[in-house]
């Protein structure tokens, strides 16, 4: 089945007591990496569990690899891989044991690929998983995820808690995985530096609401932080900025359309920004002005 988007989510809504995932819509284009960003409790995990049909949605449409996420759940799950922040395998198993289990579960399991990942990650085959370090556990989970020719890799905070060396090694593996144009990644994280390295597009979510979604480069190019005095800040119209961080010396103002703001406020210096700063300013959008 041919498809343009590895993931298509339209108006996804899920109500919990005290939390609502509110009409979330975004796409993950085939062959790309989508960074799904938000602070803890923003709704990232709820969104991922909804698209995996782990939790039922209240309304909305989800298509994965061009298939309906409920009607063709089994076919989808044969062709995707999911990596969680914690290794979900019991401590008594070994890497060799897991290969035996997954060989039976996944029709497209490739033992040679798995072996090559074990060699590359220097993971022992017969050592019990309970004796693995956190980094080794994550590498094993990734080796399992990438050994059945999954077309879509979904990661829920997979790099959280790993040291920078392991994170960098894992990100390199993902880049290799993406060399096949049929492969796509949806990666939820609050570590924006990882996503800045590998994501093609990003979706920001906060308190169940979608804040911004689009190509990473476009978002980074259109957004910027203007550093100005309090007096200059008072002249900026509230509709022209996302939010402003005030300090004793002046204000840092996040704008979402640098070109338009530069035209409107000539002489204003607007610096480049990062995904992390964008997240912080969007999260404080409701307050408009906030102090540090």
């Amino acid at each position: 089945m041919s498809y343009e988007n590895a993931v298509e989510i339209r108006d996804l809504t899920k109500n919990y007591d005290g939390f609502t995932l509110d009409k979330i819509s975004f796409n993950v284009a085939k062959g790309s990496v989508m960074g799904f960003i938000g602070q803890n409790g923003a709704g990232k995990t709820t969104t991922i569990r909804s698209l995996l049909n782990i939790i039922p949605v209240d309304s909305g449409e989800i298509h994965i690899l061009g298939m309906d996420h409920i009607k063709e759940e089994k076919a989808i799950k044969e062709r995707i891989a999911v990596v969680f922040d914690e290794l979900p395998f019991q401590d008594i198993f070994t890497a060799a044991n897991m290969a035996k289990i997954f060989k039976g579960i996944y029709p497209r399991w490739n033992g040679e690929t798995f072996e090559s990942y074990l060699d590359r990650f220097q993971l022992p085959r017969r050592k019990k998983i309970g004796q693995f370090s956190k980094g080794m556990k994550m590498k094993l989970q990734i080796a399992c995820a990438l050994s059945h020719d999954a077309e879509l890799l979904i990661m829920d905070e997979a790099t959280t808690g790993l040291d920078p060396v392991v994170r960098s090694e894992i990100l390199d593996i993902f880049l290799e995985y993406l060399e096949n144009e049929e492969h796509s990644i949806l990666m939820s994280s609050h570590i924006t530096s990882d996503l800045e390295k590998i994501a093609d597009s990003v979706t920001f979510i906060d308190r169940g609401k979608l804040l911004v979604s689009g190509y990473k480069d476009d978002i980074l190019e259109s957004h910027g932080v203007a550093k100005c005095s309090r007096r200059d800040f008072m002249e900026i119209e509230p509709a022209d900025y996302v939010s402003a961080r005030l300090n004793d010396f002046g204000a840092e103002v996040m704008v979402s359309d640098r070109a338009a703001i530069s035209r409107k406020y000539p002489g204003m210096v607007i610096d480049n920004t990062t995904l992390e700063e964008i997240m912080v300013f969007y999260v404080n959008k409701g307050k408009k002005e906030w102090r540090i």
Partner: peptide
């Protein structure tokens, strides 16, 4: 306890 139950829902296993 291990999280397999949740992970199992991501596998092609009912």
């Amino acid at each position: 306890k291990s999280g397999w139950k949740l992970f199992g829902r991501t596998l092609p296993v009912t």
